[in-house]
Nucleic acid binder design. Structure first.
Lengths: 366, 366
DNA sequence: TCCCAATTCGGAACCGGTTCCATGGCATGA
DNA sequence: TCATGCCATGGAACCGGTTCCGAATTGGGA
């Protein structure tokens, strides 16, 4: 309706060169003489010309965008990974197209639209299991696929050993002398294949067995992934009275928060009456002084996206499959040492309108 | 390298029709006879053909993608809005391209690349102020722009009245008899223009003035947006001994968590020694029984994205500028009523391997 | 039986870049 | 001086869809 947007032809005409030359300038070819380069660049500048993305996508045969499949995105752990992924892609000049997946049907719909329409150059899957037949199809089209927080043979992925993590958490409680250790985890969701909680449960069982303790399934409870649900489940475990657990391993910090809240309601002192350990080392566990198993969340996203960038550059992702390390972070909820608030580098100063902590003390990522 | 992907020409040849006809079938034109329609459809099915996104983008002149600019994405409040946006866009068949913005330079870089290369059809900005000159440019190119958690004249936006919210929170504390009310908020960040905390502070001052209370700037503190920082600041306020606040308004729930933690460390009973109210009504405030001001986070994303969908369909976004309502959610941290854990619909049942809360009781969004 | 309008359809032109090939100019070496 | 070769360059062909125009077919009415 208004005047037509300037195209590469306009620039070429204006600069008195051919379209090929302008294209070469845009793509930084060295086949252009100094003088022409300068002239074309100044024309581009003067006309404020930018090549149209979809046109270059069409002829180049790639989109410079990466699709990110994310399970229930609201979980803080998932989010941390996502942030890592987005930041790396953005630095590499790639668009991050995010697809939120909440059930199997959505997963299928998104996958087929992504794959078949080639709207992205690669796919990163976060905390999600992709069905076998889809993987085969992706392979056949040779679209790079990277798994984050998941592992499959022959595919580049970044993952942790959830079984080992569950074992570590349980061993921590065992080492403190606990024998009746409860487990609170997520409902198994076979549709999306988020198996972290169940794997941690497996580790829990292994640790108990190694310690010669018969597992008591009355101390095991599962529910939706929310603090509220965990609190309800913990309350149910407390109803066992004498037979109640002296310690609980919650398969994520979000659940651990609920457990602690329930314990407070029931007037159980932490950690004397009930020790608690969570998983993930979310910010909330630090401030609430909850023991946990640390896993590098942000890092998993960063490493996963880096692999994708390598693959798109035709390189081979250096460590093809990468397992990140876990470590127990003991805090007040199991040790009972009154941990002080971590002041880190924070320095409180007198500001213009009250007290102030100056920025930069903040844990900035990049 | 391998056999060339099938194109619309292949389908046309195979079905014995012209490319135009195939295109009409793809786009649901009614200018196609029943018989041809069926034949083309079956050919498409047989060849498993899908039109290439970038090709159709080029000729249609649109990308069917929306750019989402997000401030520091890690904040739960921002995340909730983002989820709302993504879900609505996804339902409308639009790609969500997410850009994480952590400083002014990034904002500029992303904006120019988005706008100039026309890689998206519209832009949604979440909790972010777009510089005036950029807005002008976006307007000139007539690219739809929707603001979420921000408001500017003549632009479609979804927002709340932060000043009013700050007033409501403070009035809640005043109504409980508190006179020495502290404020803990974020550092002002002029670069990204996230002014929510400062606006809530303005409301705090207004409420105090309306109650005839002289503001005491010794009770005001600002720092980075984290629980840890808030805990440190709250501790500093407690050092005032006799002059210390009897209540604190934290400009977000994340900060309120830190305040409560600090109070516990200092052996201040909540709410008797110290009442606390936050802002946002995050999940954590519910489980920790923290009073707060509820704002519809998910809804803001949903409404913002809906406006975008309307705009892209050439319609006019119905309520052009939409202000969402706030309401105080009084909980234990100010009222002191021992709120029980909200059990909602949760029913605990005996599962195959321990107790279980069946899914569906979970607060599913869509 | 003939004419006109409506319906359906084929295919060229086009969207705006990229790439490859042919060309012309210049320098170098014999 | 001429042959050789390299480098810079113009421009056609192409990427894979969409759209529009003109043609062919059909049906109905006179």
């Amino acid at each position: 309706m208004t005047k037509r947007a300037i195209s590469i032809a306009t620039v070429a005409a204006e600069a008195g060169v051919g379209v090929g030359t302008v294209s070469r300038v845009l793509n930084g070819s060295d086949q252009v003489s100094e003088a022409t380069l300068k002239r074309v660049l100044s024309t581009i500048e003067r006309l404020d010309y930018r090549p149209l993305r979809s046109a270059s996508s069409l002829s180049k045969g790639r989109t410079d965008a990466v699709g990110i499949l994310v399970s229930v995105i609201t979980r803080p752990s998932v989010m941390a990974r996502l942030v890592g992924v987005i930041d790396v892609l953005s630095d590499a000049g790639l668009d991050a197209v995010v697809f939120n997946v909440e059930n199997r049907a959505q997963l299928d719909r998104h996958l087929s639209s992504i794959i078949d329409q080639r709207r992205v150059d690669g796919i990163i899957s976060i905390s999600l299991r992709i069905p076998k037949e889809r993987i085969a199809r992706i392979r056949k089209l040779s679209i790079p696929l990277v798994l984050v927080d998941n592992s499959l043979p022959n595919l580049p992925c970044v993952y942790i050993d959830d079984v080992e993590g569950g074992k570590m958490a349980t061993e921590h409680l065992l080492s403190l002398g606990h024998r009746r250790i409860g487990f609170i985890g997520d409902n198994a969701r076979s549709d999306l294949g988020m198996s972290a909680s169940e794997n941690r449960y497996a580790g829990y069982l292994m640790a108990l067995e190694a310690a010669g303790i018969e597992p008591d399934f009355d101390l095991v409870a599962r529910g939706p992934h929310s603090s509220e649900a965990a609190a309800v489940l913990a309350s149910a475990l407390f109803e066992l009275r004498k037979r109640r657990p002296t310690a609980i391993f919650a398969s994520s910090d979000t659940l651990a928060v609920g457990v602690i809240k329930a314990a407070q309601q029931h007037r159980h002192k932490i950690p004397d009456d009930l020790a608690v350990i969570g998983f993930d080392n979310l910010e909330v566990s630090s401030i609430l002084d909850i023991s946990t198993v640390n896993q590098p969340l942000l890092e998993s996203g960063i490493k996963g996206a880096s692999k994708m960038v390598s693959l798109l550059n035709g390189e081979i992702a250096k460590p093809h499959r990468e397992q990140l390390v876990l470590d127990v972070v003991p805090r007040g909820s199991s040790l009972g040492i009154q941990g002080n608030i971590p002041t880190k580098l924070y320095g409180v100063v007198e500001g213009p309108h009250g007290l102030q902590i100056l920025q930069g003390g903040e844990e900035l990522v990049s």
